[in-house]
Every structure is written in structure tokens, then in C-alpha cells.
Simulated scan of single mutants.
Amino acid sequence: MIPVCEPLLDDHALANVAEAVRSGWISSEGRFITEFERRWAEYCGVGHGVAVCNGTAALAVALQALRLEPGSEVILPSLTIISCVLAVLDAGCVPVLVDCEPDTWCLDVAQVAARITPHTRAVMPVHLLGHPADMAPLRELADQHGLAIVEDAAEAHGAEYRGRRVGGLGTLGCFSFYANKIVTTGEGGMVVTDDADLAERMRGLRNLCFRRDRRFLHTELGRNHRMTNMQAAVGVAQIDRIADHLARKRRMADHYTERLGGVAGLALPVERPGVRNVHWMYGVVLDDAVSFDAAEFAQRLHARGVDSRPFFLGMHEQPALRERGLFAGERHPVTERLARRGLYLPSGLTLTESQIDAVCAAVQEALR
């Protein structure tokens, strides 16, 4: 079976972890934490990084840092992971959904404009599968209405929009370093920002809101969202490799596109002018003329030794959210179509060209 994604670690990462263990700093303090935060923030073109235990925690800490009033509205795409909605709810806010663009699969900025109300306080663009959302008009809207922008850049490490890296394009940028990400720490996340006050506040929120002047006196409630020094040690080594990882991802995407570009029944990933898609995962969408859906497509691929993963199911169709009275009666047709007809193919950094050829052959057989 050709897996969807496998992490790529090297001897540098192992050496860093060994150093962290020998130093005795194995928990949430140590030199690798501060180095990882500094270097990732610099990579994203901003001044501050706050490492946390995972990408979900990054979103939660970012929204809580903004001190949004209860009931404030946060606009985000329906086509995303449930972590985004959970972070909004945990902040005491109201998630407001928009549909996505049919080609980039990122949120439709025109719909964002239509859903802004006097209660809107933030917008959360999600850079899906490595392609940046359209940030220029989104920033104009945010400036016009006084909105914070919280980027979910979990799937787009190193992606660029008009010469700037994602994560550094809004008020706060959130990353995941899960095992399948371009930069991984196994589990882990980070929020980056140019706002020193927000960064300091997030450091408290991730650490149970211990006060600097009196550790066990709590005047605000936080969570234990800390990253360990050992995880950060892996992350530092991964930053050293990110240029190679990104080049590998783009070569793999080019190879897929070359092999699948003429195959009837498939829509392939795009790269809009002025952006750099890092192709975290290589997604494909079945044309409406294909008689079966993505679930059956995945079964056909699995029978031919190829693993795959479906696109997200829209947040407006999630039973756990609908049961809480959210998104009643909402329809987001582009999201619904992508959820039913989209999947992504094996895209791990360990994938060989011969394996990509085998995947492409299986795709063509499955479509016959």
C-alpha cells in the first residue's frame, strides 16, 4: 500500500533530541523552544513566535489573545477542519461560515464581505492544502471594518502570497507541526505575530496564566498548551530542511500534473498568479460527469494498493455542530461538491517518482 504521507526526519533531528535529553530540559523550557520560536517567526517575516502543543491549541490561543467580547462573530470557511470552529466556540464567539472558491478551495472573499455585520470582529482564512487564500482583498475588508485576521496556515508552510509568506499576512498566523506537515515536531503548533503585546499574552495563555510576579496566583484562566523542548529540537532541524522539503513537494506536484493533466474526469490543483502553492497534499476533484463519488474512488484506489484521504466535510454538515444549533439550514454548494468529489493522493516527502507513477496508473485504471 502506498501511504498518503510519511514524516521525513534525519540525523540532525535525532542529534538535537539527544542534546535536549542530555541537557535535562525535556519539558517546556530549554534552548530549542526559544530558537524554534525565533527562527519560525523570522521565516514567516514577523517578530514573535509562541510555540504550543498542537495546531488546534494555536488557533484557540490566538483567538483568546484578541479578547473578543462574548458573542462576537468570526467568519471562516465551511471547508476546513473542525479545530477552527472549536477555537471560535472556546473563545465564546459565534462562527459564521462562507463557501469556498471552486479552484483554489480557499474561502470566497466576496462572500466574506457579504457576511460582515456590526458583530463581526475577526476573519479566519484557511490556506487549504498549500494554496494561499486571496489575502489582499481580505486585508482591505479587515482594515475597512476593523477586523482581526487569524490565518490558519497549518497546511501551507512556506506558501507565498505576492512575495510574502503565509502566517505573516494577518494579525496572527497559526501553524500545525503534526507528523504529516511539511515541518513536523510529531505534535506541535505555533502562533506568529508582529504584535509584542499579543505574543506576551499568548505566552501566558499557553501556560495556565501563571503570573510573573506570583506564580500560583491566577487572575485569568489559561490552559496547558505548552510544547516540549524535545519537540522543538526536532522543529529546529526541520527548519534547516524546509527549502529542500518545499522543492521536493513542488517536484512531486509537477510530476503528478504531468501524468494526470490529460486524464478525463479530473480537476487538478491550481496556482493563481502571484502566489506560490507548496502542494502540501496533491488534491484532485472528480468531474460531475464521473458516475461515482470520491468515497468509491478511494475504494477503487485502495483495491489497487493506493491510499488516499477525503477532503473535509463542511462544518455546516457536521452533526456535532448542528446538534448545538449551529448552521441550521445553511447550504454551501461548492464546499458540498468538494466534500463529495474531492480527495488527495499520496504526497509524503518519502514518495518516489516510481511510486507516483504507480499512483497515476491506479488513478487512470480506477476512472475507467
Rank of each mutant, 00 (worst) to 15 (best):
109 V>K: 03
280 W>I: 08
64 Q>K: 12
38 R>H: 14
212 R>K: 09
250 R>F: 14
162 R>P: 02
119 H>I: 10
105 W>K: 01
176 S>T: 07
38 R>C: 05
122 A>E: 02
21 V>S: 05
351 L>W: 02
30 G>R: 06
205 L>W: 14
84 C>V: 11
176 S>K: 10
282 Y>A: 12
3 P>W: 12
207 N>Y: 05
3 P>C: 02
127 H>V: 15
120 T>K: 05
154 A>R: 06
367 L>A: 10
49 G>T: 01
132 P>C: 05
257 T>P: 12
313 L>S: 07
328 A>C: 12
182 I>P: 01
348 G>H: 09
259 R>L: 11
277 N>E: 10
325 G>W: 14
223 R>K: 07
155 E>Y: 13
281 M>S: 13
291 S>L: 10
137 P>R: 00
134 D>M: 11
312 F>C: 12
37 E>C: 04
341 R>N: 10
88 V>D: 15
209 C>E: 08
311 F>E: 01
316 H>W: 15
240 D>Q: 07
120 T>C: 11
333 P>F: 04
68 L>W: 04
124 M>D: 13
160 E>R: 13
341 R>C: 09
152 D>N: 11
57 A>N: 08
25 W>R: 15
148 A>M: 01
362 A>W: 05
134 D>H: 09
207 N>Q: 01
156 A>D: 03
163 G>E: 08
237 A>P: 02
190 M>P: 00
96 V>M: 07
97 L>S: 04
307 D>P: 02
94 V>H: 11
125 P>Y: 07
42 E>W: 04
172 L>A: 01
168 G>R: 06
10 D>G: 05
239 I>L: 13
325 G>V: 04
42 E>K: 15
274 G>S: 10
216 F>H: 06
209 C>L: 15
133 A>D: 03
310 P>K: 00
250 R>W: 11
245 H>E: 08
256 Y>S: 00
358 A>Q: 15
95 P>H: 00
182 I>E: 02
212 R>L: 13
262 G>A: 01
23 S>M: 10
39 R>T: 08
78 S>E: 14
336 E>Y: 01
3 P>G: 07
159 A>N: 07
28 S>R: 15
113 A>P: 07
184 T>Q: 00
174 C>A: 02
9 L>H: 13
282 Y>H: 10
266 L>K: 13
101 E>G: 03
286 L>C: 06
52 V>G: 09
51 A>L: 05
9 L>G: 06
153 A>N: 07
273 P>D: 12
299 Q>Y: 06
12 H>Q: 11
316 H>F: 10
300 R>E: 03
195 D>K: 00
240 D>R: 08
201 R>Q: 15
26 I>K: 12
289 A>W: 00
202 M>K: 03
314 G>W: 04
359 V>K: 05
313 L>D: 02
357 D>N: 13
47 G>W: 00
308 S>F: 03
300 R>P: 06
75 I>V: 11
204 G>Q: 10
209 C>R: 14
244 D>F: 08
314 G>D: 06
299 Q>C: 07
365 E>G: 11
81 I>P: 07
